[in-house]
Write a protein that binds this DNA or RNA. Structure first.
Lengths: 344, 344
DNA sequence: TTGAAAGCGCTAACAT
DNA sequence: ATGTTAGCGCTTTCAA
């Protein structure tokens, strides 16, 4: 196992001091003849500077930490792509971890990022990790919370999120515009974003004189729970005068599962029920599924830019959702060509 | 911007030496009373050890570098999930970059990983970066090449790949078993894996007396080129006695595009042509698309394990592809229930 | 223009 | 059981 050349080796080989080598590497005043001798030595010894040691001086690493809850969600994938692009343009690498939706991992991983002295942190975690992100921000590492707003953020703590209530409202407007009035919801738990989407939907429905009763909202934490959730929605409707004519899914993660559960039960989309879900995805055009899209790639870019640009005041960025109409809610008044996905 | 507490601050606060603090942190022999005083100081000062400085001693960071060609491919996503899982179990973080299929980025990013003194590297790059990975391996950072085998690998350089020729053979066997004989291929360029899949397909077809002429194989590098590729396949078939009855796509990245191109031209699957593609994906069951699946998650795990376990001899792991039969090649002899995806 | 030397935050011999 | 000291690989004064 060959030892790596250090700056000292290069200096010795070139017959200069380490200070001189450092200068030619980082651009100081060096005579051209000396410099070329050093470059020669660098090449000969295949010297690769140690970024770790370098960071010790800067006080911080050049990496951007990213803690993702669920790598399998298309939203997060595009988010990462956006982050990565900005990082690459700023000579940063991305230190990535996946929490697999486990809170204890979230905390451990944010701590690990802190230990790595990341230049900044982008997290999609719950509030549990907030105390640490605050401390990190204090010590000079900007933290950007994604998919959630932070109440009363201190300097250095920013957030990038979607206008979730508006997403719910868009859903209501679209559905009612297509003549649907009895909506069932599959949602995925207690996260603020989930709750606000449902709340926005409920409010906008109410404004149109349509109630969204509590038992028309079912919770499915995982894909396996979706089938039951959809079943209960369908069963509930059967006991009423007004049959279910629309199913809304508030998280892109469960789109496949909800769609499958509906299809498996012989429900025709959109003839029996309209189907409307969150987050655009590559197969949505082919399947004709109408979605509320988040500009996830842009959100990733902006999050990374906040890390790089380190604004003095806390920044709260709320992005607007857009509805991409296809055919899963029926053929409606306006039918425009659909070439919206992908958005890069 | 509050300065961070260092080990020296903790030592001073607790009235001990830095060596003692280091011992309680890393488990040396310390009197319980002293230790608790130190822990108290750690808590008071919110001391978080600097992993960077630590790595300087170890000679290496605790991070695993991962260079991915295309984050948007489902194959790579699951690969990363596997890597991340193993990394987390070994107190490692994943340093991730996306090359966006640009060769110059590949080289720069592998170099960046080297500078970060990653504990090991997992790359999906072309041969261009091989000289560097060899050097990294020499200096003690195991490198695992994914989706490609490395000819004559030196110690520390491993590979994890799919038996691509076998994938092609599986395709041929399935298609012919379902009575298809005139196959068209959409492939994505000159990568070895792509070529071998086509070669395997051609060979197995030939064994059954079915030629796969050169012009039945079209290349589409990007999604936008797919429509033309599919068009030329269809046009070519029209000028022959035997119409096209199967379309094969050799890369999961282009599945949507090929499927859409076919559908847009009014081609019925599987009635007009059978459709067979690479890589399982979450919508495949719903769409009834038959695929050749790679155990991408397992491949990620094994790749990361090679980094962690650092075997002395070069390891070449070739995984077997499996065909997941659904309905896109027609209803065939054996129809088994399909619950294969996901595989975690 | 260049070198000597101090020091970044931490660990690991070596003493005590 | 604890402290002292010498680095790890690099940058950066401060002199020369």
């Amino acid at each position: 196992m060959a030892k790596r050349a250090t700056i000292g080796d290069v200096a010795a080989y070139a017959g200069v001091s380490t200070a001189t080598v450092s200068r030619v590497l980082n651009g100081g005043a060096v005579a051209e003849t000396t410099a070329s001798r050093v470059r020669e030595a660098v090449a000969r010894l295949a010297y690769t500077p140690n970024a770790l040691t370098r960071s010790i001086f800067a006080g911080r690493a050049s990496t951007i930490g990213v803690v993702i809850r669920d790598l399998s969600s298309p939203f997060y994938l595009d988010l990462i792509r956006g982050i990565d692009e900005v990082a690459a343009a700023n000579d940063s690498l991305v230190l990535l971890t996946n929490t697999f939706r486990q809170i204890d991992r979230e905390v451990a991983q944010v701590r690990a990022m802190d230990e790595q002295r990341v230049r900044g942190l982008i997290v999609t975690t719950g509030e549990t990790a907030d105390s640490r992100t605050r401390r990190m921000a204090e010590s000079g590492a900007p933290c950007v919370v994604v998919a959630r707003t932070v109440p009363d953020p201190p300097p250095g703590v920013h957030s990038v999120s979607l206008d979730d209530a508006e997403a719910g409202r868009l859903m209501a407007a679209h559905l009612t515009g297509y003549g649907r009035s009895s909506v069932g919801v599959v949602t995925s738990g207690r996260r603020p974003s989930q709750l606000e989407r449902t709340a926005g939907l409920r409010q906008a429905l109410a404004e149109r004189g349509l109630p969204l009763p509590e038992d028309a909202v079912t919770v499915a934490e995982s894909e396996t729970e979706v089938s039951d959730a959809v079943g209960s929605l369908l069963a509930r409707a059967r006991n009423r005068d007004r049959p279910l004519d629309a199913v809304v899914c508030t998280t892109g993660r469960l789109t496949v599962a909800v769609h499958s559960a509906l299809t498996a039960r012989g429900v025709a989309i959109p003839d029996d029920v309209a189907f409307l879900t969150m987050d655009d995805f590559s197969w949505a055009p082919a399947l004709g599924i109408t979605v509320i899209a988040q500009p996830s790639y842009q959100m990733g870019r902006r999050a990374a830019e906040l890390v790089v640009e380190r604004p003095g005041e806390p920044v709260t960025l709320v992005f607007a959702p857009t509805l991409v109409a296809r055919t899963s809610c029926g053929e409606g008044p306006t039918s425009s060509r659909d070439h919206r996905f992908p958005d890069r």
